[in-house]
Simulated assay, not measured.
Amino acid sequence: MAAEGTGVRLSALLFDLDNTLVDTAGASRQAERQVKDLLISQHGYEESVADLVIEKFNTKLEKEHPDPSTKIDIDEERTLFLELAIRETNRHKPDLDLAKQCYFLWKRTRLQHIHIPEEVKAMLMELHQSYKLLLLTNGSSSVQREKIKVCQCQQYFDLIVVGGEHPEQKPARSIFQECFRLLGVKPDACVMIGDNLKTDIEGGVNAGVRATIWINNNNGKPDGESTVPDYTVKSVLDVKDILENIKCKG
Rank of each mutant, 00 (worst) to 15 (best):
K240W: 04
D37S: 10
T89K: 13
A85P: 13
R87D: 02
W214S: 02
D67T: 01
L105Y: 12
I160P: 00
E244C: 06
A12R: 09
Q155E: 15
I114R: 11
E126S: 08
D223L: 05
G204M: 11
G203H: 05
A31I: 03
R33D: 13
L136A: 02
D95W: 10
P187H: 07
E32N: 14
V35I: 13
C153T: 11
P66G: 01
W106A: 02
E118C: 00
F15H: 00
E178G: 01
D75W: 11
M1W: 09
H115P: 00
W106Y: 15
I213Q: 02
R110I: 03
R108V: 07
E168W: 00
A211E: 06
E77G: 03
V161C: 02
S174Y: 02
V233N: 04
L17I: 03
D73N: 12
N217Y: 14
R87E: 11
L183C: 03
Q177F: 08
K71I: 04
S48M: 10
V22P: 01
V120N: 00
R173A: 07
L243Q: 07
V205E: 13
F81E: 05
L197A: 09
K107Q: 10
Q42C: 10
Q154F: 05
E146P: 01
G208H: 12
T89N: 12
A85R: 13
I54Y: 09
V35S: 12
E244L: 13
L10F: 04
Q30I: 10
R9H: 13
A3L: 15
G220N: 11
D241K: 11
V49N: 05
T212E: 11
R91E: 10
H43G: 14
E88K: 12
A3W: 14
C102P: 05
E165D: 14
D73M: 09
K249P: 01
C153R: 07
C190I: 09
L135F: 10
K247D: 07
K60P: 03
V120A: 03
K100A: 12
F157P: 01
L105Q: 12
L243A: 06
M123T: 14
L136T: 02
W106I: 02
I148H: 06
G250F: 08
L133I: 12
E146Y: 11
Q42M: 09
D238V: 03
T212M: 06
L61K: 05
T227R: 08
R173C: 00
Q34F: 10
K170S: 03
R210P: 00
L127Y: 06
A25E: 15
Y103R: 02
C153H: 07
H115N: 08
L197W: 03
H92A: 15
I242M: 13
L52W: 05
L105P: 04
G26D: 11
V22H: 05
D97C: 06
K149Y: 06
I175P: 05
S69G: 04
L61N: 01
G250A: 07
G220I: 01
G220V: 03
K247L: 04
R110A: 04
D75P: 03
A172R: 08
R110E: 14
C248L: 10
D230V: 01
I72Q: 12
L82I: 13
E88N: 14
C179P: 01
E76P: 00
I246E: 11
I72S: 12
K56D: 06
K36Y: 10
G194E: 09
G164D: 08
H92C: 15
L133C: 05
L127S: 00
T232H: 06
K170C: 00
P117A: 09
K247E: 15
